[in-house]
Design a protein around this nucleic acid. Structure first.
Length: 427
RNA sequence: GGAGGCGUCGCCUAGUCUGGUCUAUGGCGCCCGCCUGCUAAGCGGGUUUGGGGUUUAGAGCCCCAUCGAGGGUUCAAAUCCCUCCGCCUCCGCCA
């Protein structure tokens, strides 16, 4: 949720942001008119209420007949107070629901437009030329089956499409990647976390996952709980309704958890293998900081993500995601996309968003205002350290050899029992 | 799953039975000031959060809400009733 005060002070900026996102700038005016009605009604309610309270004191002191007379007199005042309160409440609700429909105000410099209007900030490494090496690369599923590492057929038998078993090497790779990601995150000062993956509606809504992409989320009807698609949700909720002390610096967490996504509306997209699945594992970084530190923290998250991808020796590029593809809570987002040889394309592996005060405002996460009295909303940011499935794809495909074996990047070797090369069982 | 108890402005706590004098008591902690070789003690003041109004803005001042959350009863609710959430104790069950 954006700051109502900022919207009142500079509605044009919010309209421009909505425009850049390709969303309706008219909501801004819906908020403004509801806000005006709210304030008018509130003033009426408050003065009536003050009158009623003063009356209450007189009633308390009065006796007998005099008291009865006062009671008769104040009765319709009570009714008026009730009506005015309801009126203010309704206007407030209209204001809030319109306000919630507005995405975070995008940062200056964010590319305008939709999914394809990203700007490439940097390309790192060079994709291998398999033709020059004299063999055609196998895709990740072929390699996974060769190594008895990935079983999508049995995943479908047991759970349905987009489920899979990781076995043997596949399972070891997932564990290795998560352990590596946690080690790096801890070295970088992130507190390791094992979060809940079932959360209440307030946590899900607070993190911003029930707005545009509500149908992406698994819901447990019987218990009114949601399965989280990322530990960002639990980490954002961690400090809900708290006043944080950030005087010693930002709070940085790294949580590893299973993630669940319905992938609704992606039928026919990335159906082969484990590129787009309903369940995977992810180590997610999350930062609480002062607003003025948010951009530096964002740069830091990107740096850590790049450190990890560099260590995995994958060719990748960094893109500045366009406004229309940001998602509601983010004011800016960088994606790191790894080269997938058999797709001949860069695909998203990790992603980091600066949500400024958008999530924290809704979740009630504040700090003492260092510039004066009172409290103010903190900023939150998130970034993927690593997931399980897509990095496995990227590693298998990019580091494969003609005989189907896979070279292990040095940084990952300690997590795989020191193996330098992974060989298929019967090769 | 069953039975019972509890939730008050950082922490502890009075108030709830018997609705109005609660503008929520007191202590601790913290902040400011006074006093003082230094420190401590002592003395005085301040110390929930959100919103509205006033204001160029801030400070200040005025007002409203806030006693776990939401509803209800009432002229009036921390106090009575209902629902929900959380914590604790006991019983049952169970990795």
């Amino acid at each position: 949720m954006i700051d109502l005060r900022e919207l009142r002070d500079d509605p044009e900026r919010v309209r421009a942001s909505q425009q850049a996102r390709g969303e309706d700038p008219g909501v801004v005016d819906v908020v403004l008119s509801a806000d005006e009605r709210y304030r008018a009604a509130l003033a009426g309610f408050e003065s009536a209420r003050a009158e009623q309270k003063a009356f209450g004191k007189k009633v308390a002191q009065a006796q007998g007949e005099q008291k009865q007379a006062l009671l008769a007199e104040v009765k319709d005042l009570a009714a008026r107070v009730k009506a005015l309160e309801a009126e203010a409440g309704q206007a407030e609700q209209e204001r809030e629901s319109a306000l919630r429909r507005i995405g975070n105000v995008v940062k200056d410099g964010v590319p305008v437009g939709g999914e394809d209007d990203y700007v490439v900030l940097e390309e790192v490494g060079t994709p291998r030329d398999f033709a020059a090496e004299g063999f055609a690369p196998r895709d990740h599923l072929e390699l996974g089956e060769l190594h008895h590492a990935i079983d999508t057929a049995r995943g479908a038998k047991v759970s349905g499409a987009r489920f899979y078993y990781l076995m043997g090497l596949g399972a070891r790779l997932e564990h290795a990647l998560m352990a590596f990601a946690q080690h790096v995150a801890q070295e970088e000062g992130f507190v390791p976390v094992v979060p809940p993956t079932l959360v209440r509606p307030e946590a899900m809504a607070g993190a911003g996952f029930l707005d545009a992409h509500a149908d992406e989320v698994y819901r447990l009807e019987a218990d009114d709980l949601y399965l989280t698609g990322t530990s960002e949700v639990a980490l954002a909720g961690l400090h809900a309704d708290e006043i944080l002390d950030l005087s010693a610096g930002s709070l940085r967490y790294a949580a590893t958890s299973t993630c669940y996504r319905r992938e609704a509306g992606s039928y026919g997209k990335d159906t082969r293998g484990i590129f787009r699945v309903h369940q995977f594992t992810k180590t997610e970084m999350f930062v609480y900081c002062r607003v003025e530190d948010a951009e530096a923290e964002h740069a830091n998250l990107l740096r850590v993500e790049r450190r990890i991808l560099d260590a995995l020796e994958l060719p990748y590029r960094v893109i500045d995601v366009a406004a229309g593809d940001l998602g509601g809570p983010a004011a800016r987002k960088y994606d790191c996309e790894a080269w997938i040889p058999t797709q001949g394309a860069y695909r998203e592996l990790t992603s980091t968003s600066n949500c400024t005060t958008y999530q924290a405002r809704r979740l009630g996460t504040r700090e003492r205002d260092p510039n004066g009295s009172g409290t103010r909303t903190v900023a939150t940011l998130n970034g993927t350290a690593l997931t399980s499935t897509r990095p496995i794809i990227a590693l298998l495909e990019n580091h494969q050899q003609a005989d189907g074996s896979v070279v292990v990047p040095e940084a990952l070797q300690p997590y795989l029992g020191g193996s330098k090369v992974l060989r298929p069982p019967h090769a």
